[in-house]
Amino acid sequence: MGFWAPEGEREWRPGRLALVGHSLGGFAALMTAANDPTIGAVASVSGFDFGAVAPTLADPAVRRGYVEAFDEELLPLRGTSGEALVAEMETAGAAWKLAGLAPASPTAPSCSSAPAGTP
């Protein structure tokens, strides 16, 4: 995979990188922009709201459902599991709410559509 840029403009320029993500990627885009001031803009399309879902994990059946669902979703990734992601959600709690991530980026304008996974 590569990127296109006009001749002479093929260098990294902080502030000119935009991130776009959908669902889990929408969360990742907002989290990255909130923690990296070199991101110039961010868009989250139906970003999964881990922070809104975290309180529901106290119910063992709900927790098990998320573990199983994430196990299937995370197949392409090495070194993680549904259990690991759910445990991280429980630890992060409200800190991972989408509403708090978008304004956390001091430099990147953000756009977010309706979050997925919101109870």
Rank of each mutant, 00 (worst) to 15 (best):
G21L: 08
D59F: 02
E7M: 01
V20Q: 08
S105I: 05
P14E: 15
G8Y: 02
W12V: 00
P106R: 14
V45A: 06
F3A: 01
P76Q: 12
N35T: 13
D36C: 07
R63H: 11
S105V: 01
S23W: 06
F48Y: 07
A87H: 10
I39D: 09
W4V: 00
A18D: 03
K97W: 01
E68Y: 07
A34C: 01
G26K: 03
P55Y: 03
A94N: 13
G8K: 03
K97I: 00
K97H: 09
A87G: 08
G51K: 05
F50K: 00
D49P: 06
G8L: 05
P109K: 06
R16L: 08
A41D: 00
F27R: 04
D59V: 04
F70K: 02
S44I: 00
S105F: 07
L57E: 01
Y66W: 15
D71I: 05
V67W: 09
V67R: 04
P106G: 14
A92L: 15
R64C: 06
V45T: 02
V62N: 04
G15I: 08
G26P: 08
A54Y: 01
P14F: 00
A94K: 12
Y66V: 04
I39G: 01
A69Y: 13
F27T: 05
A54H: 00
G100A: 13
R13W: 08
I39N: 02
A108N: 02
A87C: 11
V67Q: 10
A54Q: 03
P6I: 02
N35S: 15
S23H: 12
D71W: 08
V45P: 01
P106F: 10
T32D: 06
